[in-house]
Measured scan of single mutants.
Amino acid sequence: MATADDFKLIRDIHSTGGRRQVFGSREQKPFEDLVDLGWLKRSSVDSRATHYQITERGTSAAL
C-alpha cells in the first residue's frame, strides 16, 4: 500500500524528468518500494549506482 512519502517521492521524480540515479543500498529502499508498487522500474544497475525510470503507472500516481 502506498504511503504519503511514496506519493511525495514519485511527484519529485516526475517533476525532475522521470529518472533518478541512486548510490548506496540504504538510499535505494524508498525507490525499491516504488518498484514494488509498479511506479518505477530499474533501468540499469552498475557497481556504484542504480538507475530508476518512472513508469506510466508512476506518472498517473504523480498527477
Results as ranks from 00 to 15, higher is better:
Met1Pro: 11
Met1Ala: 12
Met1Gly: 12
Met1Val: 13
Met1Tyr: 13
Ala2Pro: 15
Ala2Met: 05
Thr3Trp: 04
Thr3Leu: 05
Ala4Met: 11
Ala4Leu: 12
Ala4Trp: 11
Ala4Gln: 11
Ala4Lys: 10
Asp5Trp: 08
Asp5Tyr: 08
Asp6Glu: 07
Asp6Asn: 13
Asp6Phe: 06
Asp6Gly: 05
Asp6Tyr: 07
Asp6Ile: 06
Asp6Met: 13
Asp6Ala: 11
Asp6Gln: 14
Asp6Trp: 05
Phe7Ser: 03
Phe7Gln: 04
Phe7Met: 07
Phe7Pro: 01
Phe7Trp: 11
Lys8Asn: 09
Lys8Ile: 11
Lys8Tyr: 08
Lys8Leu: 10
Lys8Asp: 08
Leu9Pro: 01
Leu9Lys: 03
Leu9Val: 03
Leu9Ala: 03
Ile10Val: 06
Ile10Ala: 02
Ile10Phe: 02
Arg11Gln: 09
Arg11Tyr: 10
Arg11Val: 12
Arg11Trp: 12
Asp12Gln: 11
Asp12Met: 10
Ile13Asp: 00
Ile13Met: 04
Ile13Thr: 01
Ile13Glu: 01
Ile13Pro: 01
Ile13Ser: 00
His14Ile: 06
His14Glu: 06
His14Met: 12
Ser15Thr: 10
Ser15Ile: 11
Ser15Met: 13
Ser15Cys: 13
Ser15Tyr: 11
Ser15Trp: 09
Ser15Asn: 13
Thr16Lys: 11
Thr16Tyr: 06
Thr16Glu: 09
Thr16Met: 09
Gly17Cys: 08
Gly17Phe: 04
Gly17Gln: 06
Gly17Leu: 04
Gly17Asn: 07
Gly17Ile: 03
Gly17Lys: 05
Gly17Trp: 04
Gly17Glu: 05
Gly18Val: 02
Gly18Pro: 02
Gly18Ser: 03
Gly18Tyr: 02
Gly18Phe: 02
Arg19Val: 13
Arg19Ala: 11
Arg19Ile: 12
Arg20Thr: 08
Arg20His: 05
Arg20Phe: 08
Arg20Leu: 08
Arg20Tyr: 07
Arg20Val: 15
Arg20Asn: 03
Gln21Arg: 13
Gln21Gly: 07
Gln21Tyr: 13
Gln21Glu: 14
Gln21Lys: 14
Gln21Ile: 15
Gln21Ala: 14
Val22Ala: 07
Val22Tyr: 03
Val22His: 03
Val22Thr: 04
Val22Gly: 03
Phe23Met: 13
Phe23Glu: 11
Phe23Thr: 12
Phe23Lys: 10
Phe23Pro: 09
Phe23Asn: 09
Gly24Trp: 06
Gly24Ile: 07
Gly24Phe: 09
Gly24Pro: 05
Ser25Met: 09
Ser25Ile: 12
Ser25Thr: 13
Arg26Phe: 13
Arg26Trp: 13
Arg26Glu: 15
Arg26Lys: 14
Arg26His: 15
Arg26Gly: 12
Arg26Leu: 14
Glu27His: 11
Glu27Leu: 11
Glu27Met: 09
Glu27Cys: 15
Glu27Gly: 10
Gln28Asn: 08
Gln28Phe: 06
Gln28Cys: 10
Gln28Ile: 09
Gln28Pro: 04
Gln28Leu: 11
Lys29Arg: 11
Lys29Tyr: 05
Lys29Asn: 05
Lys29Ala: 08
Lys29Leu: 07
Lys29Gly: 08
Pro30Trp: 05
Pro30Glu: 06
Phe31Met: 05
Phe31Gly: 00
Phe31Asn: 01
Phe31Ala: 02
Phe31Arg: 00
Phe31Trp: 04
Glu32Gly: 05
Glu32Val: 06
Glu32Lys: 08
Glu32Arg: 07
Asp33Ser: 13
Asp33Ile: 15
Asp33Val: 15
Asp33Arg: 15
Leu34Ser: 01
Leu34Thr: 00
Leu34Trp: 01
Leu34Ile: 02
Leu34Gly: 01
Leu34Ala: 02
Leu34Asp: 00
Val35Met: 06
Val35Trp: 03
Val35Ser: 02
Val35Gln: 02
Val35Glu: 03
Asp36Phe: 13
Asp36Glu: 14
Asp36Arg: 14
Leu37Ala: 03
Leu37Pro: 00
Leu37Asp: 00
Leu37Lys: 06
Leu37Tyr: 05
Gly38Lys: 05
Gly38Thr: 03
Gly38Ile: 02
Trp39Ser: 01
Trp39Ala: 00
Trp39Asn: 00
Leu40Asn: 00
Leu40Ile: 05
Leu40Cys: 03
Leu40Gly: 00
Leu40Arg: 01
Lys41Ala: 12
Lys41Glu: 14
Lys41Tyr: 15
Lys41Ser: 12
Lys41Asn: 09
Arg42Val: 15
Arg42Tyr: 06
Arg42Pro: 05
Arg42Met: 08
Arg42Ile: 15
Ser43Val: 15
Ser43Asn: 10
Ser43Pro: 04
Ser43Glu: 15
Ser43Leu: 15
Ser44Pro: 07
Ser44Val: 13
Ser44Tyr: 15
Val45Pro: 06
Val45Thr: 10
Val45Glu: 08
Val45Met: 10
Val45Ser: 11
Val45Cys: 09
Val45Leu: 07
Val45Gln: 12
Val45Asp: 07
Asp46Glu: 09
Asp46Ile: 06
Asp46Arg: 05
Asp46Ser: 12
Ser47Asp: 14
Arg48Thr: 14
Arg48Lys: 13
Arg48Glu: 15
Arg48Ala: 13
Arg48Asn: 15
Arg48Ile: 14
Arg48Pro: 07
Arg48Cys: 13
Arg48Val: 14
Ala49Ser: 15
Ala49Thr: 11
Ala49Val: 13
Ala49Gln: 08
Ala49Lys: 07
Thr50Lys: 07
Thr50His: 07
Thr50Glu: 04
His51Ala: 10
His51Lys: 08
His51Arg: 09
His51Glu: 15
His51Asp: 11
Tyr52Leu: 01
Tyr52Cys: 01
Tyr52Arg: 01
Tyr52Phe: 04
Tyr52His: 00
Gln53Ala: 09
Gln53His: 09
Gln53Ile: 14
Gln53Asn: 07
Gln53Asp: 08
Gln53Lys: 07
Ile54Trp: 00
Ile54Gln: 02
Ile54Thr: 03
Ile54Pro: 00
Thr55Met: 02
Thr55Leu: 03
Thr55Ile: 02
Thr55Phe: 01
Thr55Arg: 01
Glu56Gly: 07
Glu56Met: 09
Glu56His: 08
Glu56Thr: 10
Glu56Cys: 09
Arg57His: 09
Arg57Val: 11
Arg57Thr: 13
Arg57Asp: 12
Gly58Trp: 01
Gly58Gln: 01
Gly58Asp: 01
Thr59Leu: 12
Thr59Tyr: 07
Thr59Gln: 09
Thr59Lys: 11
Ser60Phe: 14
Ser60Tyr: 13
Ser60Gly: 08
Ala61Lys: 04
Ala61Trp: 04
Ala61Leu: 04
Ala61Glu: 04
Ala61Thr: 04
Ala61Cys: 06
Ala61Ser: 04
Ala62Ser: 04
Ala62Phe: 03
Ala62Lys: 01
Ala62Asn: 02
Ala62Gln: 02
Leu63Lys: 08
Leu63Gln: 07
Leu63Met: 11
Leu63Val: 08
Leu63Asp: 04
